[in-house]
């Protein structure tokens, strides 16, 4: 039991960045139970042994998916979206009035509720942003989560957690028993598969990054590396929104928190190239 579990912890951390702690066998077993049933494995240990042989990429992807915490809902925690509307957008509208272009990255977007919530805020602010080109790129490691996100199709429970009824009426339509995000909101978001452990070079630069409730599952080293690469990806004056409980995990030299909103970080003006390189290499 201990042997496969230890090996599996290493496998999960290397594949997804997520740290599975000692004593969390129950978590692994509950997450993998549906795969166990689908493929008819006799036990969790048998399934994991097969994964560790690394012969079946499909099975590996399914197991990696299952181990990532992907719970999300529309307008989760509310305040980040309020800050997006009242602090982040006005700062950028002022700072970028010449280029009139803003790029937003929703990192680890899971099934898409966060980027669609951002797109809804932008739509509500359409008058103020007339003539601006605003792009939302949303990434996740999980192919199945991205499939749901691209479809923009949610069940009745999902559309009732965090989403005011007025926005449900405005931005969704019924699709049999489910609810689908309307086309003009869906088309504002470009989804892309990306592992946060890998390079961000393919993404170009951003003015805003939302990366909430993700870094807390990573090791301190992985956190530092992701934060440093995100700082490189941000434009001068760019902003990073973390989860409410993720106050500056190892990025103090790269970002400065807003005093009254510690999970909203501003990229430090002198972006300390040496620091960045040192952190990335560390």
């Amino acid at each position: 039991m201990i042997d496969w579990f230890t090996q599996f912890r290493t496998f999960v951390q290397k594949t997804t960045g997520v740290v599975v702690h000692e004593g969390q066998e129950y978590l692994v077993e509950s997450r993998l139970a549906p795969i166990l049933r689908t493929f008819g494995f006799a036990s969790t240990a048998d399934l994991i042994k097969q994964v560790l042989r690394r012969q079946d990429p499909q099975l590996i992807a399914l197991v990696a998916d299952a181990m990532m915490t992907s719970e999300t809902f529309f307008f989760r925690d509310r305040q980040p979206f309020e800050l997006f509307r009242t602090v982040m957008l006005p700062r950028l509208v002022e700072a970028k009035r010449d280029k009139r272009r803003i790029r937003i990255w929703s990192a680890a977007c899971a099934t898409g509720q966060e980027p669609y919530s951002l797109a809804m805020v932008l739509d509500e602010e359409a008058r103020r942003l007339a003539g601006w080109q605003i792009e939302i790129v949303a990434t996740d490691l999980s192919g199945s989560a991205l499939e749901t996100a691209r479809a923009g199709l949610y069940n009745q429970f999902e559309v009732q957690r965090g989403l005011p009824i007025s926005l449900l009426l405005r931005y969704f339509h019924r699709d049999n028993e489910k609810w689908r995000v309307v086309e003009h909101i869906r088309s504002r978001v470009r989804f892309q598969q990306l592992n946060l452990l890998h390079s961000f070079n393919q993404l170009d630069t951003f003015d805003i990054i939302f990366c909430r409730n993700v870094l807390m599952y990573f090791s301190p080293e992985t956190r530092r590396s992701v934060m440093a690469r995100m700082a490189q990806t941000l434009e001068p004056g760019g902003m990073l929104m973390l989860g409410a409980t993720e106050f500056l995990p190892g990025g103090e030299h790269l970002f400065q928190p807003l005093p009254e909103h510690p999970s909203l970080l501003l990229k430090r003006p002198v972006a300390l190239d040496a620091d960045l390189k040192r952190t990335v290499l560390a």
Partner: peptide, 28 residues
């Protein structure tokens, strides 16, 4: 139905829950 939800809101409701619900929906 969307039309019923809209009717309820028009009649003066402040929010709307579609059954079945759970604790998170009520809280939200």
């Amino acid at each position: 139905d969307i039309s019923n939800i809209a009717r309820a809101m028009h009649a003066g409701a402040d929010e709307y829950i579609m059954k079945p619900f759970d604790r998170r929906i009520i809280r939200s």
